[in-house]
């Protein structure tokens, strides 16, 4: 994974991150918000790593995306959405209007292919993640 070291959002805005983090319901702090080298990172993990100034924390700080998700490149967004979809229980399907109903694996395939359903799921997931910042939960 490429890290954008010129965009040091957290170094410059650590207080802002803490403010956003503080406003997230405790249960939702276990939400996956990043994937770094195949490792899913939750709000809690990001907070702890940054606060403890670990190597991972330093890497997270170099990524601008928690700003939130505005500047992620397409492949990174897809990777994040797929990782989040994997947490969906196997007995649940999503009704996507006239496109039909889709299982977890079918949704993941749609995201990988970036078909109409996949694009919709990506848009929906990003809206959800941005809602943390906007405080509309």
């Amino acid at each position: 994974m490429t890290l954008n070291s010129s965009n040091k959002f957290f170094e410059e805005n650590e207080g802002r991150f803490v403010k956003v983090y503080s406003n997230i319901p405790i249960n939702l702090r276990r939400e996956i918000i990043l994937v770094i080298d195949d490792n899913p990172i939750t709000w809690n993990v990001a907070y702890v790593e940054i606060k403890n100034k670990t190597e991972l924390g330093e890497n997270i700080k170099k990524i601008n995306r928690i700003r939130i998700y505005i500047v992620m490149v397409d492949e990174e967004i897809k990777e994040l959405v797929i990782t989040r979809l994997k947490t969906m229980p196997a007995n649940i399907k999503m009704s996507v209007g006239s496109y039909g109903t889709f299982s977890k694996n079918e949704l993941i395939e749609s995201v990988k292919k970036e078909n109409e359903v996949g694009k919709l799921v990506i848009e929906m997931q990003l809206k959800y993640l941005k809602s943390f910042k906007k405080g509309i939960i």
Binding site: L28, M88, P89, M94, K127, Y128, I137
Partner: peptide, 11 residues
């Protein structure tokens, strides 16, 4: 299922 439900409800 909470996360999946919330994301669809917000949408």
């Amino acid at each position: 299922e909470a996360s999946s439900i919330i994301s669809c409800l917000i949408w």
